[in-house]
Structures are given as structure tokens and as C-alpha cells.
Design a protein around this nucleic acid. Sequence first.
RNA 1: GGACGAUUAGCUCAGUCGGCAGAGCACCGGCCUCACAUGCCGGGGGUCACUGGUUCAAGUCCAGUAUCGUCCACCA
Length: 879
Amino acid sequence: MSEIADRYDPTRVEPRWYAVWEERGYFHADAASPKKPYCIVIPPPNITGSLHLGHALNNTLQDILIRYKRMDGYNALWMPGTDHAGIATQYVVERQLEKEGKTKEDLGREAFVARVWKWKEESGGTIIRQLKRLGASCDWARERFTMDAGLSAAVREVFVRLWEEGLIYQGDYIVNWCPRCQTVLSDLEVEREEQDAEFVYIKYGPLTLGTVRPETKLGDTAVAVHPKDRRYRKYVGKTLEVPSVEGTITLRVVADEAVDPKFGTGVIKVTPGHDPTDFEIGRRHNLPVRSVIGFDGRMTELAGKYAGLDRFETRKRIVEDMKALGLIDRIEPYRHSVGVCYRCKTVVEPLVSKQWYVRTRPLAEPAIKAVRSGRIKIIPRAWNKTYFHWMENIRDWAISRQLWWGHRIPVWYCDRDGSMHVSRTDLTACPQCGGALRQDTDVLDTWFSSGLWPFSTLGWPEDTPELKVFYPTSVLSTGFDILFFWVARMVMLGLKFMGDVPFRHVYIHALIRDAEGQKMSKSKGNVVDPLHVMDKYGTDAFRFTLAALAAQGRDIRLAEERIEGYRNFANKIWNAARLVLTNLDGYDPALARRGTPSVADRWIRSRLTETTAQVRQGLDAYRFNDAASAIYQFLWHEYCDWYLEIAKRSLYQPESPAARAVTQRTLVEVLEATLRLLHPFMPFISEDLWQRLLPNGAAADPSTRSIMIAPFPKASRKGRDPEAERLMAPVLDVVSAIRTIRSESRISPAVELAATVRPASPEVAAALESSAGIIGALARAALTVAPDGARPAGSAMAATPSGDVFVRLEGVVDFDAERQRLRKEVEKARKEIAFLEARLGRPEFVERAPAEVVERERTRLAEQRETERKLAASLAALG
RNA sequence: GGACGAUUAGCUCAGUCGGCAGAGCACCGGCCUCACAUGCCGGGGGUCACUGGUUCAAGUCCAGUAUCGUCCACCA
């Protein structure tokens, strides 16, 4: 305590505490605890991930909630873990192999998967270490991984049960295929990218139609027009002999609603094998599927002379060939969006293949009801609509992925008798004929396992105490970008397998953008690295910034100045504590308890109570910014700016040892409670300072060994002291008024002024009399309270709610500045009077507005008239 | 093509029940006052995007317009 630096240095404080907390087991939640449960499951970060701002924001908010609830007496569990992130992880390891000049096929499936596990063991923990750096108070003893044994068992159980209920099926469908990743992608995994293209008008016999994908012409099995399109009605049902690049082909003409008669020529080519719309048209009209592009992105044997050629190369070649044959009508430039793989940005190829699906309709209905009935509350509510829209239009979920890394589909095929077996356990021989089995080579979509996260992490399908205690969890916090990917699926699967919602609240936080409002992305190079921010400004400042910016329903633009501001705030807290700590010499709590608290002591405690209420309200409503700014405002602008300045008097020039002790007690106790309020936001500095305060304050009770497990302050009614607030207001008014006059009249801060106050009431007079010393110190003015006194000659004047303040100017200044100031004040008062007179002059207002509003306006008008009169008199007196 | 959101001080943004327009930063003036110059004191700065409507009263509610942004969608 003796050597406490005059600047807060996070690097000397932050590394110390996390290990202490973790070692003492404060993060651990015991299922056997009698306390009320509160549980958050972390959105499991990808093992390939490293902490980005989105993580930092989301996990800071979760940590604030969990620390708040833990301190507030809940059995608070923050369940951590990571996601195996199928495609992303496989991609990373493939890239590694590539550098070694190898492919995954060189290794073979088993060795490749082993290699990924090895990578996971070595590098997969990065994000966890970074979360710890952020201060995340997760129950690490419970850390799970979506591919560990327990969760894999849960995945199998869910798959088998869905299969048994007919909710999983296998089907030939057109899917989004990534030729690079060699796997199917769900609709959600396909991103849209604007691209320039050529819109090629091709002659199809008597018809002409436009396409941006001429290469798929080879897979055409029909042309289609709109049923009501008179222009083409005569062709519908006919078969056309069409000259093409490979001789003449035969195409049916079908009529289908999917065709937009106003777009292009109103005719489309139908390629069921390579276009989702065409696939549907093909189903409706029984058209054959002709797959001319293979899974490798090259043309198949069916493409004839183009076989083996890359799909984009074929596009160019076929256009040239058709030009040569005179089959091209015209080519127009065209801009459209193409689907690309979210992972590698390769253009996705729609292909027909056999995939596994989950039938989602039966699952979606209860999930819709859960939100509609309020059993799940989405915050902010605006997201309900998005949720409903998606759920009501949900499509079956393609769950198979042609990857090696992931949960392998628990289906075995017997080649001998052709049977198929879905099993919870690995099968080695056919249960029917004993023949050899092959397991399905596909793995499950990563979201299949993370969709079970809220209950699989708690031990399901075992019947564990954790499940009983912590399910349903309390809140899920996440960005809206994975509302469908993840949240919707957790709701569906939680309701299905647990019979209850997975969480009661879904808090959807804003998206962080850079200072220019751009989405941050590696390719744009505008990524702010949270680790760098923490190094530069400290973790606490960073966390507080995120909380302060976390207003609902908005994007967040992160500007560095803001972080700097909260770094300064941390420094302010540090120095406030330093002032307190260095003035505790001889502090005698017993003596303090016998003394009488001053109005200022009572006032600051009352303000603390109000602040506590605001912080609690803010956190309970997920209004993190409100909670943060309440603490900021109180600590800086009430505790530091006013109370500490007042306290200095009795510290430095004590009237009595008892008065000094009372002040010391208030200083310590208010700071101590404020640190507890602050702790969820700034865990490190709050702990460090709290520990320094301890020897003088708290007892040796085990619950006081760390702020982390100390109780969160309560805003009790008896903590409020309206009388103290009323008595303090005149002091603040008068000090501010004198300071304003000093500054505006350009009087040096060094000059001791003589101030006279004509108080607005006897109560104010008494309050000022008893606080004259404080006012004298804070305003550097000798105060006279003169209830009926005349305005002292040659003085500046300021009107306040508590009374009129006069400062003698003679000998300290020329009067010009004061005249100018008074004129401005008079002007302001007159404008206000005019406005109020107009309002009160309207009968409708007086008749219709609530009585208290009218009364308030009348009072204001009277006050303003009085003020104006006094100011004018003061101005006149100045000559 | 639909849906949603935004538009408030120079900048970034709060503003919950319709009732005196706010914060931080920036700016201007004054202070190195024995916690902190990462500080202290004081100050200026607003047609709440626009048009209309409802209301005694609108930043707030309703309708429309403009601009920006996001999400969804099978326009080849």
C-alpha cells in the first residue's frame, strides 16, 4: 500500500488475479449447491479460432452476467467448450499438408483424422487461453469439446432417435457443392457474391433464351415457358429438335410457373442436374437428370467432347463453338450474384447427389410456439420476426458432409445382403447375415453437434444432476449471424430431446464494425485485434468499453478514442483508491461508528444506493451500456469530483478525530461497495484495489477473501436518504454558481472571493450555513448566508434553484465580462418566459394536460419571471 | 423482389410511459490546487433527415419520401 503507483498499470495487476481465482475454485459451480441456479453455455468457439472482437464482446457480456449472478448469490455456471468446426478445421490441416506437398488422400482417412486431432491438441487451445486473458470466469473443469466421448454419444443418440422416428431420411437432391472442399454445403453456408458475367442468348430451334451458364446446356433436358405466356403457348407439350454443339438434341417444352415471362425472352432452358430451380421443374414434369459437371468441377463423360474440361473453361469454349455454328443470338453484359463457399469462396456448383436430411417441419412447430408463448424471450424483441420468418419457411436440413473430420454418420451398409443399419454403437458385422460392413463415409454437419450443446454439455443422454439443476439454461448470448445456424437448431433439438426450451432468454448483441462502420474482415485488413487492445489499454478498459457500447439493436463502431477514455477511467479509479488508501492512517472503525455522518457522507451513500439500483436494472434488462454509464457517472462525477474533494477537508484539517474517522469510514465503505458494483465489468482492477482495502475494512470471513465471491451490492430502500440529497443540492448549486462566475468573469482561481447567498428557503439556509466550510473550500469563497439581505453592491449574480448567489467583484475584475454574462442570462430567461406564457396562454393546454404538468409549467414560469427580474436588477446595479 | 434497421451536437452514439434534448470524444477559456495533466474548473455548440397526420403537447405515435445499411429470396 505504501508504494502505490500514481498511474494504473494493468500489466502489473491483471496477470496476478486470474490464476488465484481459478486455483481457489471460484469458477466452479457445484450441482449439489442449494443456491438458485443460473447457467450460461458459451457459444463454443471453433478450435481454429483466435479471439476476435465478436468473441470479445460476447464473452465479456456473458462474463459480466455470470459474475453479477455469482456475486448475487446464485449457483452460477458458465459452461465452456470448443467446437470441432468440421470444414474449417479440415481446411486448416489440409493447407498444412499442402505446404508439405501432400494431400489428405496421401495420408488416408485414418491418418488424416489423427493428424487433425494432433493439430487440435497443439493449437486448438489458443482461443481458450485468450478467453482466460479476457477474464472469462468459465467453469473450466467442465470444459467440453463437440467431439469428445460424451458429446459424441449424444450425437449418436440423437441421430438414431430421429432416424427411428422417421425424421432423418436419405435422398437424392440438388445440393450446393463446393468442388474445392469436396463437400455439400447447407444453404446457410453459401454466401452471395456479385459478379460480372455474360448473358448469352442461345438459339434453341425456333426459340431463343438467355443464360449465364452456357456450359450447363449440355445437361438440358427441356425448355420451359410460363403457362400463361401466349407467345409460346403453341410450343408447350411439343418436342423440339434443336441443333446444338453436339449435333441435334431433343428437348421437351414444358409450362411452369417458375418461369418469369418478363425476364429475358421468357424462355428458360431446364437443367435439372445443375440448377435448383430447374431441379424442381424437372420433378414436376418428370424430366431426366443429366449430370454433365462432376464433383471435381470438371465436365463428365456425358459432356461428350468437353469431358474432363473445367466448368469455366467449358463455358468459354462452348460459346466459341456455338458462335461458329451460328447458334448465338447475342451476348449482353450482366451483373448477378453467384453462390460461393463461405469457407474458401469457390463458386458453388449445384449438383444432384445422395445426402442425409433432417425433416424440420415437425421440429420447427414447437420451436415457433416456444417463442410465441414467451417461454423463450428474445432480446431485443425485434429479432422475433426474423426468427419466425425463418422457422415458418424452414427447409429440410441437409446434415451430411463429405468430410473426414467430424462425427461420422452412424450408418453401416452390408454389401452381402444390401441391408442398412443405423446404430448407437459401432458395428463390425452385419446383424442380419454376419457379412462385412462399410460405414457411411460422410460426417455430420458441425451444427448437428453444437445444436445439442445446452444439454450434451450437461451430460445428456446420461441422467445427470447437472441436467436437473441447470437445464433449461438461463440465457444464451450470441450475435444474430448464427441465429439460424445455431440458436434455432438448439431450440428445436432441445424441445425434442429434453422436452423443454434450452434457455429462457436469448440475448442478441450488436455486431462490431470498425470506426468507419465497415464489417471487419481479414481481407479488408481492418481487423482490430482484441489482444493488441488489451496489451495497450488493459483488459478492464477494453471490457468496460465493450459493455458501454453494447446498446441494443445497433451496430457498434469501435473507435480507439473510446477505449482510451475508459483506460483513463481505470486510472481515475486507481487514483481515487490511492487517495483513500494513503489517508487511512490511524483509522479507527470503532471510533467512526460512534461519530455522526455528515450530510456529505449521507449524500454519497444515498447516491451509491441509487447507482446500485441503476446497475442492477441495467444488467437485469441486458442494458449493459446503462449499467456501465451509471457506474462511470457515479464514480467519476459524484464520488471523485464531489465527495473526495469534500472529504479532503476533514482528512487534512480535521475538526475532530471522530469527524476524520467518520469520513475515513465513508471513503472506504463507499469505495469498497463501488468496487463490487464494478467487478463484473472490470474484474482485475476491482479485485486488486479491493484486496488493498481489506485489511482496514472487512473481517476475516472466507467470503471476503475475494471480491469475486463477495456479495453484489443491494439497493435497499433504507440506503436512500432523500433528506441528505435535498440538503446537499444547495451546496452543489452554490459551489457551481460561484465557479461559473469566477470563470466567466475571468477571476483567477487563486483569488479568494466573498460570496453572499440569498437562500430560497429556510431549509436551504440551514443547509448552507452548516456546509459553509465545504463551500469555502470547493469554491474558494467566504460564504455569507443572508436570508433577507440586499444584493451587495458591485457584485456578480447567478440565480440557482437554491437561491441567488452574489460574488463581490470589486477589486478583482472589470465589470464588462459580468455585464455580458448577465445579458445572456437575461436573454435566456426571457425566451423561456415567452415560451411558457405561450403554452399556458392556450386554453386547450390548461384544460387537457394533466394537472401536475400544468402546475409544473406555472411554477417554472413564476421562477423564470423572478429570475429575470433579479438578473435585470443586478445588471442595472452594475451601471 | 420482400423484410428489418438507421438518420439526434463537429465525430461516435444514448434517449424505456408522448411532458424542460443528453453522454463521451473533439472544440473554446482558465488552472501543473499536496489522488490522478490518462487530471481539475468553466463554457459554446441542436430545424432531432424531409413532408404530412394524430394530440393540449411529438426526437418519441401514424402515413409517405429520401439516403445509408443489414438479412432473406429459385429471376435463368
